[in-house]
Design a protein around this nucleic acid. Structure first.
Lengths: 213, 213
DNA sequence: CTATGTGAAGACATTCACAGCG
DNA sequence: CGCTGTGAATGTCTTCACATAG
């Protein structure tokens, strides 16, 4: 392949799944895997995995497959998750608290390092190992810790205002749980977690098979 | 267009976003909207919206645009969310509790009607308006209430076992928060909420702009 | 004159199928 | 012989651009 081809975003979004599956393989003590086997675990075709990886180099051995640990390291490096990415979390309601305490965020390059809320009743409260800070201080913390990543877990109507402040302070990528499309400069990345929309897209298919109760 | 063309899944996944945006427009008292205006709110091109809608019929007025309320009703009907979809939630840890209490799930066709966990300490506990039930009873509840939709919020290693039970009991669509790809029959729908993977895919781009702290 | 609906074109993503290497 | 890596072929999705309707 032309190495000058940029990897499509859809490929980038699959890499974390490959990485996770490789970690599970390692935990099972499996040290070698073919594109076929890896694909079966994550419901992706073998050709797709090989093509995806080919955007970044040649990591396998013909006739053998891939060394799990080496491939994992390659992917972690490609994604940049071999480095440490501090994240701020804004909005410490029930969802925010669950996010703040979720172990999955403490590993694999990502670490929530500060919690913010505007509610005086929440400021000062301990959540997991962190103390909730006043959102008014978010700029200073983002600047001091050179934070580029943020998670927003505030109500829909506050999400845009929060995003504006975060971006102005230096955040370059946002994961938002608010049911609201954010308007951001084109050099800022935004992704959404939207369980209601996901469920509603599945009802489309269910409604066509058999009616609901 | 050929009405015989099936709408692509990517179109189905956008419909809930259109619906939500239309609801916000209604709340703002706006009753007419062009594909251009709607597109600007949700960062989708006008042509895409018109093409998407064309899979299902003709809902606009040339020279004018769309009647917000009518288009919303059409989309809700297409998605099947004009009907009532009862959902079971399995796994009442911190995340499960946040999901159970989230208001967004109570509207728009979706309603969580039963909570399940296997932990004796959690069974019997009240969460919002519901009481946590023993997961051992999940089959009976799914059958009695004709439930087709489930949300899984259990640890990764338990997710497959939980999914197997749910599907056997009659569930046809699953929204899973577990960081694990589920193996299911091909007539069952599965979608994932995977915030860690989403964050990790954004670090790819950040790592290429400027190094993290 | 404005904005929809839609074939056709173009861009993008996936799969195929096989040369080539270990 | 098995499995990777990859051009080419196929399939899918998005955008274009304009005929058409109000």
């Amino acid at each position: 392949m032309e190495r000058s081809d940029l990897p499509p975003d859809v490929v980038i979004r699959r890499l974390p799944l490959y990485a996770r599956s490789l970690r599970y393989l390692l935990e099972e003590g499996i040290h070698s895997v073919s594109s076929q086997e890896l694909g079966e675990r994550i419901n992706v075709t073998a050709a797709q995995i090989r093509k995806d990886l080919s955007y970044f180099g040649e990591f396998g051995k013909q006739g053998i497959g891939y060394d799990v640990e080496k491939l994992l390291q390659h992917i972690e490096r490609i994604l940049g998750i071999n480095q440490h990415w501090p994240v701020v979390l804004v909005g410490i309601g029930l969802l925010g608290q669950a996010i703040a305490r979720y172990e999955g965020f403490r590993t694999e390059g990502i670490e929530i390092v500060a919690l913010f809320d505007s509610d005086p009743a929440k400021i000062g409260q301990q959540v997991g190992e962190l103390v909730v800070q006043d959102f008014a201080n978010v700029r200073r913390v983002i600047a001091e810790k050179h934070i580029k990543l943020a998670i927003i877990a505030v109500p829909a109507l506050q999400a845009q205002r929060v995003a504006d402040v975060l971006i102005e302070a230096g955040v370059r990528a946002i994961l938002s749980y608010a049911p609201m499309i954010l308007q951001v400069p084109e050099d800022v990345w935004v992704r959404y977690i939207d369980p209601v929309a996901v469920l509603q897209s599945m009802t489309y298919y269910l409604a066509r098979e058999q009616p609901p109760s």
